[in-house]
Amino acid sequence: MKQVKIHSEYIKLDQFLKLSDCVPTGGMAKALLQENLVKVNGEPEDRRGRKLYPGDRIEVEGEGSFEVAAE
Protein backbone atom coordinates (compact mmCIF):
# COMPACT_ATOMS: atom_id res chain seq x y z
CA MET A 1 0.00 0.00 0.00
CA LYS A 2 1.38 3.39 -1.02
CA GLN A 3 1.00 6.39 1.27
CA VAL A 4 0.07 9.73 -0.25
CA LYS A 5 0.79 12.71 2.00
CA ILE A 6 -1.50 15.72 2.02
CA HIS A 7 -0.78 19.21 3.36
CA SER A 8 -4.33 20.08 4.42
CA GLU A 9 -7.10 18.66 6.60
CA TYR A 10 -8.63 16.74 3.67
CA ILE A 11 -8.37 16.25 -0.09
CA LYS A 12 -11.16 15.67 -2.59
CA LEU A 13 -11.19 12.29 -4.32
CA ASP A 14 -10.62 13.64 -7.84
CA GLN A 15 -7.62 15.65 -6.62
CA PHE A 16 -6.30 12.59 -4.81
CA LEU A 17 -6.49 10.49 -7.98
CA LYS A 18 -4.35 13.08 -9.78
CA LEU A 19 -1.90 13.47 -6.87
CA SER A 20 -1.38 9.71 -6.67
CA ASP A 21 -0.69 9.56 -10.45
CA CYS A 22 -3.68 7.30 -11.11
CA VAL A 23 -4.97 9.75 -13.73
CA PRO A 24 -3.44 12.80 -15.45
CA THR A 25 -6.60 14.94 -15.59
CA GLY A 26 -9.83 15.62 -13.71
CA GLY A 27 -11.85 14.42 -16.69
CA MET A 28 -10.15 11.05 -16.54
CA ALA A 29 -10.84 10.91 -12.80
CA LYS A 30 -14.54 11.46 -13.51
CA ALA A 31 -14.55 8.62 -16.07
CA LEU A 32 -12.74 6.29 -13.66
CA LEU A 33 -15.32 6.99 -10.95
CA GLN A 34 -18.28 6.51 -13.33
CA GLU A 35 -16.96 3.04 -14.20
CA ASN A 36 -17.02 2.10 -10.48
CA LEU A 37 -13.30 1.32 -10.43
CA VAL A 38 -12.61 3.15 -7.16
CA LYS A 39 -13.28 2.06 -3.58
CA VAL A 40 -12.88 4.20 -0.47
CA ASN A 41 -12.50 2.25 2.79
CA GLY A 42 -13.77 -0.87 1.01
CA GLU A 43 -16.94 0.74 -0.39
CA PRO A 44 -17.48 1.68 -4.07
CA GLU A 45 -17.33 5.45 -4.57
CA ASP A 46 -18.42 7.57 -7.54
CA ARG A 47 -18.42 11.10 -6.06
CA ARG A 48 -15.53 13.23 -7.29
CA GLY A 49 -15.94 15.63 -4.38
CA ARG A 50 -15.78 12.97 -1.66
CA LYS A 51 -13.55 14.32 1.09
CA LEU A 52 -10.67 12.06 2.09
CA TYR A 53 -8.96 12.40 5.46
CA PRO A 54 -5.72 10.91 6.81
CA GLY A 55 -6.23 7.20 7.42
CA ASP A 56 -8.69 6.72 4.54
CA ARG A 57 -7.81 3.86 2.21
CA ILE A 58 -8.41 4.03 -1.52
CA GLU A 59 -8.33 1.12 -3.96
CA VAL A 60 -8.10 1.87 -7.68
CA GLU A 61 -8.58 -1.07 -10.02
CA GLY A 62 -5.46 -1.52 -12.11
CA GLU A 63 -3.44 1.00 -10.06
CA GLY A 64 -3.26 -0.45 -6.54
CA SER A 65 -4.04 0.58 -2.98
CA PHE A 66 -3.31 3.91 -1.37
CA GLU A 67 -3.62 5.47 2.07
CA VAL A 68 -4.07 9.17 2.81
CA ALA A 69 -1.40 10.35 5.25
CA ALA A 70 -0.96 13.66 7.05
CA GLU A 71 2.30 15.46 6.56
Rank of each mutant, 00 (worst) to 15 (best):
1 M>G: 15
1 M>V: 10
2 K>F: 15
3 Q>E: 12
4 V>L: 13
5 K>R: 15
6 I>T: 05
6 I>P: 05
7 H>K: 11
7 H>T: 10
8 S>Q: 14
8 S>A: 12
9 E>S: 13
9 E>R: 12
9 E>K: 11
9 E>D: 15
9 E>Y: 00
11 I>D: 01
11 I>T: 13
11 I>E: 03
11 I>N: 02
12 K>Q: 15
12 K>G: 03
12 K>C: 03
13 L>W: 02
13 L>S: 06
13 L>N: 11
14 D>P: 06
14 D>Y: 13
15 Q>L: 04
15 Q>I: 09
16 F>C: 09
16 F>Y: 07
16 F>L: 08
17 L>D: 05
17 L>Q: 10
18 K>F: 07
18 K>L: 10
18 K>Q: 13
19 L>Q: 12
19 L>D: 06
19 L>C: 04
20 S>K: 02
21 D>P: 00
22 C>E: 02
22 C>P: 12
24 P>E: 13
25 T>R: 08
25 T>L: 07
25 T>S: 15
26 G>C: 00
27 G>W: 00
27 G>F: 03
28 M>V: 11
28 M>P: 10
28 M>E: 15
29 A>V: 08
29 A>Q: 00
29 A>C: 08
30 K>M: 06
31 A>N: 13
31 A>V: 11
33 L>F: 07
33 L>I: 08
34 Q>V: 01
34 Q>M: 10
35 E>M: 14
35 E>H: 15
35 E>Q: 15
36 N>R: 07
36 N>D: 14
36 N>Q: 12
37 L>E: 09
37 L>G: 04
37 L>D: 06
37 L>Q: 13
38 V>Y: 09
39 K>Y: 11
39 K>L: 09
39 K>C: 10
39 K>I: 00
40 V>G: 08
41 N>C: 04
42 G>I: 04
42 G>C: 05
43 E>H: 01
43 E>R: 07
43 E>A: 07
43 E>I: 11
43 E>N: 02
44 P>I: 09
45 E>L: 00
45 E>F: 01
45 E>S: 14
46 D>Y: 06
47 R>S: 12
47 R>I: 04
48 R>I: 05
49 G>V: 01
50 R>F: 12
51 K>W: 03
51 K>D: 02
52 L>D: 02
52 L>T: 02
52 L>Y: 06
52 L>H: 07
52 L>R: 10
54 P>C: 07
54 P>F: 03
54 P>G: 12
54 P>S: 06
54 P>V: 02
55 G>N: 12
55 G>Q: 08
56 D>H: 14
56 D>L: 03
56 D>V: 03
57 R>H: 04
57 R>A: 08
57 R>F: 06
58 I>M: 01
59 E>Y: 04
60 V>Y: 02
60 V>E: 06
60 V>Q: 11
61 E>C: 01
61 E>F: 03
62 G>Q: 10
62 G>V: 08
63 E>P: 04
64 G>H: 13
64 G>N: 14
64 G>M: 12
64 G>C: 13
65 S>L: 10
65 S>K: 13
65 S>H: 07
65 S>P: 01
67 E>C: 13
67 E>D: 00
68 V>T: 07
69 A>W: 00
70 A>R: 14
71 E>L: 14
71 E>H: 09
71 E>A: 11
71 E>Q: 14
